[in-house]
Design a protein around this nucleic acid. Structure first.
Lengths: 341, 341
DNA sequence: TGTTAGCACTCTAAAGACTTGAGTGCTAAC
DNA sequence: GTTAGCACTCAAGTCTTTAGAGTGCTAACA
């Protein structure tokens, strides 16, 4: 639909604007890119591109900037697979080696790492506990009427929660409870425990009241783990972007990022199968229509585990961010695996 | 050392400057405060106060602002106890009721709460695990060569850590280990376990290799809990202060706040017995010599547990921040107690 | 002797005039 | 179809001016 030359010019405009953050004009473009035509011709082509909706004009006499449609064309035209520089690769390897000692640090550090490389806010949506399989439940005595329930999954995640002792029950009852549950649920997905298994546990326990209490304890213990967790990185790096040199804009974004549920919803809605890019006004949320979001999902044993994302101004280094996320996408499963063992 | 009238004028200058963020002049002061003298007299007094080092002049013909010495005089002259408004009190009560479900959320939410009320960055240094008493250690089997060690203290904190199984040992050995350790260490402070107790454990276990492994496991399990944890709140509220309308200053502060160990050291160094205020150039760290820090320590059963602090520009509502911290100081012990039970 | 009015002086910040430079769109020539 | 040339536009920087708030000093006053 766009002839060769128009494509080259559009691409050049995107690249220049991304790197300079200034509207680009025909003269600059001719100087910086070897397009083989004069500024006047470029001017004509740019006017055409504007008519077609790929470029925008702020004022009559300012250079052009890409529209959402323009970025979209550029992004769709990027050829995969993209490469991550060796420099970045070794930075990544060193980062995990130096900063991650425990499985639960993986996600926070991944977020920091991504924002470090891309100079943008990074978001990591970490695995749902309920998508993992049950491994083991134990109680630790706290005092006469309370205990700590500790739940372990096969992905190596540990959740703990204080629980009230069921009325009339004592600690040995809880231990019996744990034994029954451990026997019945071992290896089962927490998401959907079949009714038959629940009936089996009910019979095994015998005591109806204790069964009801047990279920409540189990659900409550699971409750905190059910939610996907959101890790945030790079609010500092964000400030390096000229788009965020205005404090009020920074505040707006930061306030939005504090709304965890909102952000989770946005990430869930945007993620696609592999890399997904949402550009500027393509965003449904009005507060980020001058931002773009790139998401990537990562997997373990073929199952979707979580999402990694970059949020930045529409003027973003798409190629770099996408190649990085693509790389993380491919490697995060293995990294998680490494810390689980 | 300062006569009545000079004190009143200094106080008035501080109050006006704190609320307006503009240098205050004699005329404005006379208009806003009922000092009973003319601007000319105030001018003379202000000149004196400047000579004495309590006030500063930016340029020849601008109003005055308080110096660190001026703030110090003002802060020292605040009469204790200061009151927290009923509005704030109910905000605080509601906040904990709505947002804190688990003990470990107390600190993060306390930080958020304080920054919400004071419109400044808030820092909470949470209890050292090692200052708490040992209650219970248990292992959960992970696979053939690893297990999860779960440690519980009498303050209700739970720590977990993956441990490699000692060579040649099997899971029942770990359970025996846990039993011995539980029997020996119950109620003991983790900070200083007496040598005799260690010897007792050694004898009980019998196997020398298992003992060495046990100690390593115990120390490693404790390791993560040993550090005081730092919770941060209110980087967003900070932006409301005119001092931070400049992005580069914001970035400087945010970068500094990311240096967790540095911040911890600053807090530890500054905290005094009750409320401690460090004003502007009184700070040793050059990067925050235009900031003030107010710290308060909180206690449980008479023992120092942690520190709560506010970090903001020198132009800060000292009375409000101090009264709030004083209030938290008195109540946090009870709040923590409430969630432990 | 302390207080105050008056006045000249200072400095900032906002507002307006001017200049410069990058860029556009159009037309005519190649 | 491409390009040079030219008139026009707009933003941003520079300079000047003005208004306003403030100071310090002096002389008058109670």
């Amino acid at each position: 639909m766009l002839d060769e030359r128009k494509q080259r010019i559009l691409e050049a405009v995107v690249q220049d604007y991304v790197s300079s953050a200034e509207p680009v004009g025909s003269r600059t473009l001719a100087r910086r890119h070897d397009l083989g035509v004069s500024p006047a011709t470029i001017r004509n082509e740019m006017a055409d591109l504007e008519m077609l909706g790929y470029l925008e004009h702020i004022h009559t006499s300012s250079g052009r900037i890409p529209s959402a449609k323009g970025y979209r064309f550029y992004v769709d035209g990027l050829k995969m697979p993209m490469k991550v520089s060796d420099e970045d690769k070794s930075l990544i390897a060193d980062w995990y080696k130096a900063k991650v000692k425990r499985i639960d640090e993986v996600f926070q550090e991944t977020a920091r790492l991504i924002s470090r490389v891309t100079k943008n806010v990074s978001l990591v949506l970490a695995p749902q506990l309920s998508q993992a399989a049950f491994r083991c439940l134990q109680f630790l005595p706290l005092d006469d009427h309370r205990a700590i329930a500790v739940l372990l999954t096969d992905a190596g995640f540990v959740e703990n929660k204080m629980v009230e002792m069921p009325k009339g029950a004592e600690f040995p009852d809880l231990q019996r409870l744990a034994a029954v549950i451990n026997k019945s649920l071992a290896g089962k997905k927490l998401q959907a425990i079949p009714e038959s298994t629940l009936q089996f546990i009910r019979q095994e326990i015998g005591d109806e009241e204790l069964y009801a209490a047990a279920m409540e304890i189990l659900w409550r213990a699971l409750d905190t783990g059910k939610k996907e967790r959101l890790y945030l990185g790079g609010t500092t790096h964000m400030l390096e972007q000229p788009e965020f040199h205005d404090v009020s804009r920074v505040k707006e974004i930061l306030l939005m990022l504090e709304e965890e549920e909102l952000i989770k919803d946005i990430l869930r809605a945007h993620r696609g199968d592999g890399l997904a890019v949402t550009i500027g006004t393509e965003n449904e949320n009005a507060r980020i229509q001058d931002c773009s979001i790139i998401t990537a999902t990562y997997h373990l044993d073929g199952e979707l585990l979580g999402t990694v994302a970059v949020l930045g101004p529409t003027r973003m280094e798409y190629a770099k961010a996408m190649s990085l996320l693509n790389y993380m996408n491919a490697n995060l499963g293995a990294i998680v695996q490494h810390y689980i063992g």
